[in-house]
């Protein structure tokens, strides 16, 4: 698949699985229903095809030996029809009840351990954890916990689809919907957008990472320490003179960076790129690679000047910036001056 989305692709077992991995209990239950339906249709199909083949052979025009007397009367025909109708009705109602029970269960979940917000947006998934941790196109969750998702969209209708959970919810702008799952197997699973949403619909991919409880705690801690990383990054940002151009004041020579992370950035080349970690990193090391629309390519490369740790710190700082942060800061400064 496309290189742009490569970092978000889950590590799944290679090869085609006609039945996707069962990563929840619901997945197993649903597959049972599916197999039952496949079985029932196979029986009916074999019956129809078998009868066609049998009649086709037996009553072919050339076969004079076949007995063609005693055609069924209208009365018999009606009886056969009613029998078929009744048999089908019973079978159908059985399937209806079965499928509906599963469906209702999949909506009215048990009490959740946590609620994660999922926001769909052309063409990415923005995730927000209860503690404020943000992710893009990836959801890290602990195994064996009931996770409730609260999904909405910022622009058009998307659909949150995790085949391994047999879970799909349309993500509709202006409404919030919920979905829940309880993953039983640690691992990485595919996340698709299933509702057509525009040019890069097929690249709106992501992953659900189900982790053991210990790993999950470790992951959370790593994310949580982002605060101190960020403050270190802020000092670096000022020390290296980035703030001189990037502070988002009027007639700035460079784009403002608050709220950049997770946004789509229009490039000079006419493309639109998602501002993720890789983009921010590239912009520091190879500023000429993606030039933001409307700005001159004047930024020098910082390759060789910053260590990997420093880059990480700066990236974390930029990631931590919320929209409007810098405006607030400049207001404070102004107040200080006037005093």
């Amino acid at each position: 698949m496309n290189d742009e989305v490569a970092p978000y692709l889950p590590e799944v077992e290679k090869g085609l699985h006609l039945i996707p991995t069962q990563a929840t209990e619901h997945a197993g239950q649903l597959d049972h229903l599916y197999f039952a339906l496949v079985g029932a249709s196979a029986i009916i199909l074999l019956m129809v095809v078998g009868l066609i083949a049998f009649f086709g052979f037996r009553y072919r025009a050339g076969n004079k030996a076949a007995d063609r007397s005693n055609l069924p009367s209208t009365r018999t025909e009606n009886r056969v029809e009613i029998a078929v109708l009744a048999a089908m009705l019973v079978a159908f109602m059985g399937f209806f009840a079965w499928a509906t029970t599963l469906y209702l269960d999949s909506y009215r979940g048990p009490e959740p351990a946590m609620t994660i917000d999922v926001i769909g947006k052309q063409w990415m998934w923005k995730i927000q954890h209860p503690d404020g941790t943000r992710e893009i196109n990836a959801i890290h969750v602990p195994v064996d916990e009931v996770i409730r998702l609260r999904v909405t969209s910022q622009d058009v209708i998307h659909s949150f689809f995790v085949p391994a959970f047999r879970l799909k919810r349309d993500v509709v702008p202006g409404t919030e919907k919920t979905a829940w799952f309880k993953a039983t197997e640690p691992g990485e699973y595919r996340l698709f957008c299933a509702e057509y949403c525009g040019s890069f619909h097929s690249r709106m991919l992501g992953k659900v990472v189900v982790m053991d409880r210990g790993d999950y705690q470790a992951w959370l801690t790593r994310q949580g320490s982002g605060q101190t990383l960020a403050s270190a990054g802020k000092q670096l940002f000022q020390a290296h003179g980035c703030s001189g151009c990037h502070m988002g004041k009027s007639n700035a020579r460079a784009p403002s960076l608050d709220g950049l992370y997770g946004r789509s950035v229009a490039l000079d080349s006419g493309e639109v790129i998602l501002a993720d970690e890789a983009y921010i990193r590239d912009s520091i090391l190879q500023p000429d690679k993606h030039i933001a629309a409307g700005y001159e390519p004047i930024m020098p490369s910082f390759a060789g000047q910053l260590s990997e740790e420093d880059i990480l710190r700066i990236v974390t700082y930029i990631k931590s910036l919320q929209p409007g942060d810098w405006v607030k800061e400049s207001v404070k400064e102004n107040e200080g001056e006037s005093r």
């Binding site: 229903l33 339906l37 249709s41 199909l45 499928a99």
Partner: peptide
Amino acid sequence: FTIGGFTGIFLASLAVDVHVHDT
């Protein structure tokens, strides 16, 4: 038509449709 019709039953079954909808 028989195959198409029976897979229609799959899609009418709510829980199955959730998985295969838009696929």
